[in-house]
């Protein structure tokens, strides 16, 4: 049986064709008719429609894909790309923040530390995981695991997928700003390779708090932004409904991030988005991760750390004018 699906507005023409196809298949079985030609025609049309829609996705539509409730999450990639994952819980200070998961695992047979932001699939799980919005203790758990990785010489693989750090009273009282700042500072000089991949939402400082890395990768339909399109629209256009315009202006999609020099490589998703074929997505992810990790692992420690410093040091666009 097919799983219940969630259809985005712009995916609807595809859904209509799929339903037609299912209906045709059902009636041909019932009436013993040969409709293989018709079926083939619809299948072709589905591919054609998908290609057409996905060739001209707007930034805002990509944001919808990045937030698609059936999109693979960190734990899905951990299950698909890694073996022998041992989840390690808690910051040893306050509590276990389930919006960030992490632990040791094997990647292509070698031990690594994998850390990711994790959203929930159901309402119940989303409440437990706070919709993927980490609290300070999540960032402190991540730092604890990174320091452990440094001690045992394990590369760190970070999976970014958060709307942002949680804006709450408790988060402020336990100093979420400091938790993020300390992670950024410590990651800039952590003496093991770090590869960060934006798999869904790269929401501002909440994303950057586990995304200072030797290589920053991004899935084709993921986004990475200084502020959510809705937040930006509310501030600059005084109206959240201008989010599509903000998504366009902020240049948050994978292709723009490559142009701006923020990410190193884009991981291709299957036609229709990662959720339409998680296995194919995992395969292309594995290939890029493997290549990038082995390239960084070949560097001497000094070269790696100098490279990481320079990578972020040179980000920014300004001119020198004579006054």
């Amino acid at each position: 049986m097919e799983k219940a699906t969630f259809t985005l507005e712009f995916e609807k023409p595809i859904k209509v064709l799929r339903d037609q196809l299912a209906e045709l298949q059902r009636s041909s079985e019932e009436n013993n008719l040969d409709v293989s030609k018709e079926i083939q025609a619809i299948e072709e049309k589905i591919i054609e429609t998908k290609k057409r829609i996905h060739a001209e996705l707007t930034p805002w539509q990509k944001v919808q894909l990045a937030r698609h409730p059936q999109r693979p999450y960190a734990l899905d990639y951990i299950a698909a790309l890694f073996e022998d994952f041992q989840q390690l819980h808690g910051d040893r200070q306050f509590r276990d923040d389930q919006a960030i998961v992490g632990g040791t695992a094997l990647f292509e047979g070698k031990p690594v530390m994998v850390i990711g932001q994790q959203k929930g699939r159901s309402t119940k799980e989303n409440l437990a995981r706070n919709f993927g919005c980490p609290n300070p203790e999540g960032y402190r758990k991540a730092l604890r695991l990174m320091k452990m990785a440094e001690k045992f010489k394990l590369p760190v693989i970070c999976l970014i997928d958060t709307p942002g750090a949680y804006p709450g009273v408790g988060a402020e009282e336990r100093h979420v700003a400091e938790a993020i700042a300390v992670n950024i500072r410590e990651m800039s000089n952590l003496r093991v390779p770090i590869i960060a991949t934006v798999i869904g939402e790269g929401g501002s400082g909440g994303a950057l708090g586990i995304a200072v890395a030797d290589r920053v990768l991004i899935l084709q339909n993921a986004y990475y932004s200084v502020i959510s399109p809705e937040g930006c629209a509310a501030i600059l256009w005084k109206d959240r409904s201008h989010a599509p315009r903000a998504a366009e202006s902020l240049k948050i999609t994978a292709d723009k991030l490559i142009e701006l020099g923020i990410v190193d490589e884009v991981i291709e998703e299957p036609l229709g988005g990662a959720h339409t074929d998680p296995e194919v997505t995992a395969d292309s992810f594995r290939e890029v991760l493997s290549k990038q990790l082995s390239a960084v692992s070949k560097l001497t420690e000094k070269k790696m750390l100098d490279g990481r410093y320079e990578k972020f040091r040179k980000m920014g666009v300004f001119e020198v004018v004579q006054s």
């Binding site: 950024i184 950057l208 990475y224 923020i262 920014g316």
Partner: peptide
């Protein structure tokens, strides 16, 4: 945009 975020790093 994102270049501002990177100033934090």
């Amino acid at each position: 945009g994102i270049l501002s975020l990177m100033q934090m790093a």
